[in-house]
Design a protein around this nucleic acid. Structure first.
Lengths: 188, 188
DNA sequence: GTTATAATGGAATGATCGTTCAAGAAAGGA
DNA sequence: TCCTTTCTTGAACGATCATTCCATTATAAC
């Protein structure tokens, strides 16, 4: 009978994710992946296929985790607007580590349909939760009724990308907090 | 006496810029550059040194051109707020083509000081013009006095990055226009 | 112990990378 | 005409790339 796997696949993917987040797809070599994942080169290819497949796996895992974190923050707090604020503040305080979603879009745009599909699926899910929350906040008078919830969701996602690019470009924490404040301000 | 140069250096750099904008630094090969620039490979290395030097040249040229375009839009219109709106609308309507500034930051972050310096220099210049314009708009009551002009400038720049990433991710023109509207709204 | 699989590490493959060498064609000033 | 330089082209270089082959060791179930 077979010897069971000893290393955890998700842990290995997390290692790959870290490298891809920092250096992008083209900027990452197989050797960097081997080092960061803590497994042998052959195990890498046996388990994940090739570099591209591994990148997709990392992006998939990142997207679902990030989406979940957003939703959790969104549902936190007593009032709907509190959840929205919590979501923004989480992005602000986590902006120091690069975002693989933004990275993949900056690097590939829409040219790789497999990536676009992954990003769009997470986007769609998250957008749904956002719209729901925005509607609730509007019902409580915390967000202007004139605003279209869908446009606000788009605005959130774009603002997050803006904050993350700002952070990657060297913005200081205070500036990032101000950006979060400005985003909140647009809702009134 | 020597034969004068036949190709225009800036035109060649523009060709390189187009490739770098679309594929990033690592995703661009020397052959792609030769094809896009319309010059021989040897001329490329004779004139520009190497790929990295060429990338810096392209970024430098892009940054100054972009900064200038921003300033021109900023100064247009009768009232200061009109200039601000024009600047935002220009970003919205040009968002279809990728931004080399955003691309360089997404790809390298702050790890390459030579790039950071180029981006920061343009940023500093542009920020100065923005602050001036914001103060004028505040004096006319078109932007809330409570807002710090410097924070608004940061917000503009981050919003532009957000809009451009959104566009690169496949956002439709209407969504981009909405993003511009939301950015304007945060100023009230 | 035997067997089947997991996993590692090193060497090798073929491709592509950025870059340079070498030679020739083109073009203006003398 | 003859220089001198520009520019192009193709071949070549060494390095690195992703990937695979191979031999070896380790560990579980039988």
């Amino acid at each position: 009978m077979p010897r069971p796997k000893t290393f955890d696949i998700d842990t290995a993917i997390d290692g790959a994710m870290g490298v891809f987040r920092e250096h992008g797809y083209e900027g990452t070599s197989a050797q960097m992946l081997v080092d960061a994942m803590g497994i042998g080169r052959q195990s890498l290819y046996d388990t994940f296929g090739d570099k591209w497949e591994l990148y997709k796996g990392a992006l998939r895992r990142y997207a679902t985790a990030e989406k979940q974190a957003h939703r959790t923050a969104l549902k936190s707090g007593r009032r709907p607007i509190d959840g929205i604020r919590a979501m923004i503040e989480r992005v602000v305080s986590d902006a120091a580590t690069p975002c693989l979603g933004v990275g993949s879009i900056a690097e590939f745009g829409c040219s790789q349909s497999e990536l676009t599909e992954i990003n769009l699926a997470a986007d769609r899910d998250l957008r749904g939760a956002m719209i729901e929350q925005v509607r609730a906040a509007q019902a409580q008078g915390d967000i202007a009724d004139a605003l279209d919830p869908d446009a606000i969701a788009t605005f959130f996602i774009a603002s997050f990308a803006g904050i993350r690019i700002a952070a990657r470009g060297g913005a200081r924490p205070q500036q990032l907090r101000d950006l979060g404040e400005m985003a909140m301000r647009a809702l009134r």
